[in-house]
Design a protein around this nucleic acid. Structure first.
Length: 480
RNA sequence: GGGGCCGUCGUCUAGCAUGGAUUAGGAUACAUGCCUGGGGCGCAUGCGAUCCUGGGUUCAAAUCCCAGCGGCCCCA
């Protein structure tokens, strides 16, 4: 038995399983600097899929991609006080160029609001210049002091950050929500991960924003994961960066802005939610490889005939725009290949052996359930297409059930603590709206308010902490 | 923020308690040649280690001590 497979069981030690799965499936590797990771081919291909899907979405609604520098003068960051306070503890600074100290130290962007908005101030003159709707795909650095974890919390990561500038508050509000719903669609339809959406409390909102909307998913260990955020910045940045325009009314107005982002953390979420003891299980819509074909050339049969058939089916699948790998390497046995591609999360495998050849059939195996079936060769392509759809749906359905199973409505603080320690997950509870209660709960249990959901429900009891009159039901959880 | 564990060929690891003789051992991977092939197939040969880094203790350090770097886990 080799140790190239996953040796830790997902249910036994989730954290260890996660790390092992990420490393052995070759999604990522550690880099020499603490908290930094190498995103390897397989993960980068998934990231490119996410980019492709999201680019298509935002371009359809008039957004365009740009690139701003990664160095931000200290003075820029300081302009919006709350923003600076929020980010300064984890900013990495460049203080020297070559061997001479810089006159003003430069932040390596932790996010690009300030450097972009300085430019926006120059670009915006008239209402005719609005809206600005741009996005950039880039790396950012946040010098984490807490424990880091592959994909979920690293000091450098990749993301997209969208930034828009509008003439009215209403337009900005609509943008925030439009993007949030595009994110939700991306996560549920493509990543097959169900999410809750809502508004962050003041203590959890983006530093400098009016309010932050977010998407939260539930991981199998009962911890929540923030999947993306969409912020309404109001006029906070407009005022400090002096982004003004002359309106149709001939008056000066400050602009209304939004910013929003998703990161490579999503890849970690996919691993956690769908993976199993054999490795990754990738939703077909983001899988870099949809189908792997493994020819099984027994001795005594004609290996060339089997390979030819494999190539024929490969070509047919490619005609349907499916990503196919024909693994005809001779140095590995079929069993080895099965394990290898399962580790990589390929949704469907096709086996073609002498038995299949003789009976004009192929054997199909699906990654999510492990079920094998035999179909007529002529039906192979259409069956694969059906299977891919089924797998996509099945993964989402399973994750949906898991989310529901890990969501508990609690009435009292005792019940809250009991459920949190025994089962974790989302705790739906009444809240009075006080930041103090929120803070106390965090101190005492480690759980925070993940969301104030958009779907409002009447409080079922007094505030879960103080017992006073509650204003709404919110979702608490421990989180990554 | 608090606590704990860990670092030895590419990878996983034995050795460390009780310092010295294992030539730092094994497995796996890799290379070559055979053999195979429907769930990590087998045989042979070969290649492969600054024992994380720096200091200290000692006649002697992979082993003990200190610091740093890096990784993991748990708690809040």
């Amino acid at each position: 038995m080799s140790d190239t497979g996953i040796t830790t069981k997902k249910r036994v030690d989730f954290s260890e399983w996660y790390t092992e799965t990420v490393l052995k499936s070759e999604l990522a590797d550690y880099a020499p600097v603490k908290g930094c990771m190498i995103i390897r081919e397989h993960a980068y291909a998934i990231w490119e899929k996410i980019q492709e899907i999201f680019n298509k979405k935002i371009k359809a609604t008039g957004h365009k991609n740009v690139y701003f520098p990664m160095f931000i003068p200290e003075g820029f960051l300081k302009k919006e006080a709350e923003h600076f306070e929020g980010f300064v503890p984890e900013v990495a600074w460049v203080t020297e160029g070559g061997s001479s100290p810089l006159e003003e130290k430069l932040a390596i962007r932790p996010t690009s609001e300030t450097i972009m908005y300085d430019a926006f101030a120059k670009w915006v003159r008239s209402w005719r210049d609005l809206p600005i709707k741009i996005n950039q795909w880039c790396n950012i650095v946040r010098w984490e002091t807490k424990a880091t974890k592959l994909f979920l919390r690293t000091r450098e990561f990749l993301w997209q950050e969208g930034h828009t500038v509008h003439a009215t508050s209403e337009e900005a509000e609509k943008e925030v929500m439009d993007i949030l719903l595009e994110y939700k669609d991306l996560m549920e339809k493509y990543l097959a991960i169900p999410v809750l959406i809502g508004v962050k409390t003041d203590s959890e909102k983006f530093a400098g924003a009016l309010y932050t909307t977010a998407l939260e998913a539930m991981m199998p260990d009962g911890k929540a994961l923030q999947m993306g955020t969409s912020h309404n910045l109001g006029q906070n940045f407009g005022k400090v960066f002096d982004i003004k325009f002359i309106g149709e009314d001939k008056q000066d107005h400050y602009v209304w802005q939004t910013s929003w982002g998703i990161t490579t953390r999503l890849i970690g979420a996919v691993v956690m939610v769908h993976g199993d003891d054999k490795g990754l299980v990738l939703p077909p819509k983001i899988a870099p490889v949809h189908v792997v074909i493994v020819p099984i050339p027994y001795k005594g049969t004609d290996p060339e005939a089997i390979k030819a058939k494999a190539r024929e089916i490969e070509a047919k699948l490619k005609e349907k725009n499916l990503a196919v790998v024909l693994d005809d390497r001779e140095e590995y046995t079929p069993g080895w290949k099965f394990n290898h591609w399962e580790l990589k999360g390929v949704p469907v495998r096709i086996e073609i052996g002498p038995r299949d050849l003789k009976q004009k059939q192929v054997t199909l195996a699906r990654r999510d359930t492990g079920v094998k079936c035999v179909v007529k060769e002529d039906d192979a392509v259409s069956t694969v297409e059906t299977l891919l759809e089924e797998i996509q749906h099945n993964l989402y359905a399973k994750a949906r059930i898991a989310l529901e199973e890990k969501t508990t409505t609690v009435k009292s603080y005792d019940e809250f603590k009991k459920v949190l320690s025994e089962k974790g997950g989302f705790l739906k509870a009444s809240w009075c709206g006080s930041g103090k209660c929120e803070e106390k709960v965090k101190e005492e249990t480690g759980a925070t308010i993940r969301l104030r959901p958009f779907e409002k429900e009447e409080p079922i009891a007094g505030c879960v902490y103080c017992g006073e009159k509650a204003v709404e039901m919110v979702y608490f959880a421990r989180s990554y």
